[in-house]
Design a binder for these strands. Structure first.
Length: 570
RNA sequence: UGGGCCGUGGUGCAAUUGGUAGCACGUCUGACUCUGGAUCAGAAGGUUCAAGGUUCGAGUCCUUGCGGCCCAGCCA
């Protein structure tokens, strides 16, 4: 059990608590998670989900006016959005362990209200139809250091604007030919205030509202008012929207409507991966991975398939905190949270990835016996199981060295080790092929050590995992490494991009590994620890004939560390 | 060179709001162990971006620098 289940505070929670204390929002706490359905959710979104839904949960009992978190799709750009994404987002939020109850909303369902509000702004002389095309709008916008120029259409009459806007909606004009723009200040140092576009003409079928519209509101014109409609109290978003806040404020004030408070926090960055939907989409479309749910992807569906648990991800989000400055978190911290949870919850099992045949010369031919094995030493209630033992076994190739280096404690000629839950064995001879590769080992076992303890108190340095050759199940195992070879994939010389840093060895398939028979029929997505190797998860690609395992993460391996440092010596 | 936001060990976060820098990950030791896992104990590692100033006292306040991120989509 983790020692501390409480959620530490942070500057966002501090604001919420303070607002509750001063009764700023009538005792209400309403947050929202507002994805655009244009891709799959990733671990960066998990940070936002945990923040928004977490706050609603934590303040449930403290907010007399009620606390809730909405799921709202910011679906304002039908050219990029799809039903597939809408569905996956719901599945992923639920899998993470959060529930929005009745509060599932779509910005596209506010389009009528938004249209009315646009008319209201036109009537107030605060919006106008502009005939400039994209290039011209850019030219008029000015630069970071120079003010923009007013559009020649900026001073059209209210009557003309109303007529034109109505006809935009009616489909009288071609795509991109006109826009509705807010009439603010072309000289503002904040470029977002230089008469931003509110509506564009775009003939596209919308995944949620179909072909009802040929004009679509921009995100800037939609987001703040959607929060307003839902009476959000704390509109929590990422840092890049800080510059947009004055615009959202302007819209709410100009409309005279309920005005939520926006709070910005830094998005999550992780080493050895990329975290933008654009790049993830490119990896998928470019065939660099097998799909959005490829176990190497930082998407929630990818992590799920890889074997991550929602608990691990939630705890990770708790541990990383929330702040206002960009930072990059070491992937090792995510893996730490993962192991921490999996260690407590995963049944142990034995599997051999690269088999080396071991023949126990003094064990009766044709005999099989069942030995008792503990399912989870961290959880006594998980009980025990029986594993078969016989004369011919497989052990891991890595667990034998004919000429053992210093600090290598495993099996070697003449050396005695323990087979987990079974017997002590001693290697008596080595069989090789013509090329000199070790093909099998002959050993003897000590019948007195049955179960794994020696009555004479004799100690061995190490315990090996094993499977009985004639009882083991053949399975496929997929081993994963980081998708990128460097901590910051975007750190590339000029002319190259992050794809140059793709790790070409991020997937290694072991077509035939062996697992103990208790794993027969293991359900997709079920998680195990393969003793001494790591945590593994049944891949949905599994068939009744062949189970496929994904390696979620290795166990911490101090021998690997020693070996690595030894190889680095001159 | 306009505006906005932000700088605390290698990394991520704390510091009772002015009281003498703490936690986690990682790294390195050691103990224990039927997973070289887990667990436990310990160590190394910070002139809190810098320089001034206010103060008995500054990571916290002031000034000036420096550095980083964001903004010139009819993307979100």
């Amino acid at each position: 059990m983790s020692d501390d289940n409480r959620q530490a505070s942070d500057f966002v929670r501090d604001i919420v608590a303070e607002d509750l204390r001063t009764n700023k929002w009538d005792g209400r706490v309403i947050t929202r998670f507002p994805p655009e359905p244009n891709g799959y959710l990733h671990i960066g979104h998990a940070k936002s989900i945990c923040l928004n839904f977490g706050i609603a949960e934590e303040f449930r009992d403290k907010a007399p006016g009620g606390a809730q978190c909405h799921l709202r799709y910011d679906d304002t750009n039908p050219t990029k959005e799809e039903q597939e994404y809408i569905d996956s987002i719901k599945a992923d939020v639920r899998w993470l362990g959060f529930d929005w109850g009745e509060h599932e909303y779509y910005a596209s369902e506010y389009f009528d209200q938004l249209y009315e509000w646009a008319v209201q702004l036109i009537q107030a002389g605060k919006a106008y139809v502009c005939d400039l095309d994209g290039d011209q709008v850019r030219e008029h916008r000015g630069t970071l250091t120079q003010p923009g120029k007013d559009s020649p259409y900026r001073n059209r009459s209210v009557k003309e604007n109303l007529d034109l806007f109505e006809r935009m909606r009616a489909g009288e004009f071609p795509d991109g030919s006109r826009t509705l723009r807010a009439r603010i200040d072309m000289a503002s140092p904040n470029l977002n205030m230089r008469d931003p576009v509110m509506y564009r003409i775009m003939r596209a079928v919308h995944p949620h509202v179909g072909d009802k519209w040929c004009i679509y509101p921009t995100y800037d014109w939609t987001h703040g008012q959607s929060d307003s409609i839902e009476r959000i109290t704390h509109s929590i978003c990422t840092l890049e929207f800080e510059n947009h806040r004055p615009l959202y404020d302007w819209f709410c004030d100009a409309l005279g409507i309920y005005h939520p408070q926006q709070i910005e926090f830094a998005r999550l960055n992780l080493t050895y991966t990329v975290m933008s939907k654009r790049k993830l989409l490119e990896l998928v479309k470019g065939g660099h991975v097998r799909g959005w749910d490829d176990p190497r992807m930082p998407t929630l569906c990818g992590l799920r398939r890889r074997g991550y648990s929602p608990e691990a991800i939630r705890n990770f989000c708790k541990v990383i905190g929330v702040n206002k400055y960009e930072s990059t978190i070491d992937i090792a911290l995510l893996e730490h949270c993962l192991r921490e949870h999996l260690n407590r919850t995963s049944p142990r099992v034995m599997a051999v990835l690269r088999p080396l045949k071991v023949i126990i010369d003094n064990y009766p031919e044709g005999q099989t016996e069942m030995l008792e094995a503990i399912n989870n030493p961290e959880d006594p209630s998980a009980g025990t199981r029986q594993v078969p033992f016989s004369r011919v076994l497989y052990i891991e190739q890595d667990d034998f060295r004919e000429d053992p280096p210093r600090k290598f404690f495993r099996l070697a000629p003449g050396r005695e080790v323990r087979l987990r839950y079974a017997y002590y064995i001693t290697c008596t001879s080595v069989v090789k092929d013509e090329a000199g590769n070790v093909t099998e080992l002959h050993c003897t076992y000590d019948p007195a050590t049955r179960g794994g303890d020696s009555p004479d108190g004799r100690k061995v340095k190490v315990t090996l995992h094993w499977v009985a050759a004639d009882q083991a199940l053949p399975v496929e195992v997929r081993l994963y490494d980081n998708l990128f070879t460097v901590p910051d994939p975007d750190d590339v010389p000029p002319g190259m991009d992050y794809k140059n840093n793709l790790n070409l060895n991020s997937l290694e398939v072991v077509p035939q590994a062996w697992v103990e028979p208790s794993l027969k029929g293991a359900a997709p997505l079920s998680r195990y620890q393969f003793e001494r190797l790591g945590y593994f998860c049944v891949d949905p690609d599994s068939t009744p004939e062949k189970t496929v395992f994904n390696r979620t993460v290795t166990l911490k391996d101090s021998w690997a560390k020693i070996e690595k440092s030894q190889s680095q010596l001159p």
